[in-house]
Simulated scan of single mutants.
Amino acid sequence: MFIKPKKSLGQNFLIDRTVLEQIIDTVEITNKEVLEIGPGSGNLTAYILKKKPKKIYVIEKDNDLVLLLKDKFTSEIDIINEDVLKVPEDEISDEKLIVFGNLPYNISTEILSKWIINLNKNFWFESLVLMFQKEVAERIIAESNTSKYGRLSILSVWKMNIKKIIDIKPHSFSPRPKIDSTLLLFTPRVNFFELKDPKNLEMITRVFFNQRRKMLKKPFNQIFRDAKKIAEKFNIDLNLRPQNLTPEIYFKLVKEYESLNC
């Protein structure tokens, strides 16, 4: 059964055996429950099964691919035929999941942001092994004082430890994308800044990074009534720019904003 990849769903099927093996060797999955996002034609799914997990769930939106997966794997996998953005991920299993995902490039940051924002102290996963467009991965792992550092970097490290695994070239996929990809490993942070509402982190970083080349004075004045006093409290030079502040400083600023306004 041949399925033509749909451009509208950002489908690029991973076909490189070496890369598939590298992905599957990133974490231990034997006798653990696994969730695969966007299994496509099931190439990675087959490698997952070889490692003998306790159970495999897959989320696949494409009805044609669901039929292919049912035909290929019969009762070996539990298929959730739904848009991943609409799935309540913490209700999939009572056990912590190992998650693999060759995420559609057009919604990859939306998926990651949704998962992080919805997280509480009881993480629903043990680890995330996710593939992104290389440029997006660089933004996720960027550190302060670099050009790629921004809102996505800060949100990602809020609750996650992140490690780059490999870069993946276009020839590893069918059809070939025009860009390189990068595989990242995410694991939960034991301790993270507790905020009353994650949307405040989104709001504050948006205000700062919408004007990333401007000095900090302007966004500070937009957010705080007494900007100078807040800056002094956290020893921040208002002549610096948004990329000069570490994620920890942003978390503290959000906490300060919440104490003053919520």
Rank of each mutant, 00 (worst) to 15 (best):
T45W: 03
K6N: 07
S108L: 11
E256L: 10
K178T: 08
N161I: 15
I59L: 06
Q11D: 05
F125C: 07
I230L: 09
K32P: 02
C262V: 15
L240H: 03
K214V: 09
E36W: 08
D197R: 09
L195H: 03
L260A: 08
E95Y: 13
L44M: 11
G150Y: 08
I15D: 00
S41E: 11
E232K: 14
K228L: 12
K148A: 14
L184M: 09
N81D: 10
V87C: 08
D16I: 08
I249W: 01
L155I: 15
Y47M: 11
R189D: 00
S181H: 03
P177Y: 09
E36M: 11
I79Q: 04
F224Q: 01
W124V: 10
T26H: 10
I56N: 00
I204E: 00
D94G: 04
I48E: 00
T18A: 13
F125A: 02
D167G: 11
I29V: 15
N210H: 13
R139W: 01
N43G: 04
L216I: 12
D62S: 01
L119M: 14
K178L: 12
N43R: 09
I236E: 08
E110P: 02
N210R: 11
D167H: 10
L67V: 10
I107L: 07
E82N: 15
L240M: 13
L152H: 01
D25Y: 06
F192W: 15
L112W: 06
E135M: 14
I140F: 02
L112S: 03
L240E: 12
N145Y: 06
D226E: 14
N12W: 06
S8V: 14
K32R: 15
S147Y: 09
E232Q: 11
L112A: 05
V157D: 00
T246P: 00
N239W: 06
T18I: 15
S144A: 14
L103F: 05
Y257R: 02
I80D: 00
E28K: 13
N102W: 04
Y57P: 06
N63C: 02
L245W: 07
T182Q: 05
W115Y: 12
E256C: 13
R225N: 15
E95L: 14
I98A: 04
K233L: 11
K52M: 14
M160D: 01
T30Q: 15
K54N: 12
I165W: 05
K61L: 14
S108W: 04
N239H: 07
E202H: 03
F224V: 07
K218V: 13
L245R: 08
P198K: 02
L14H: 07
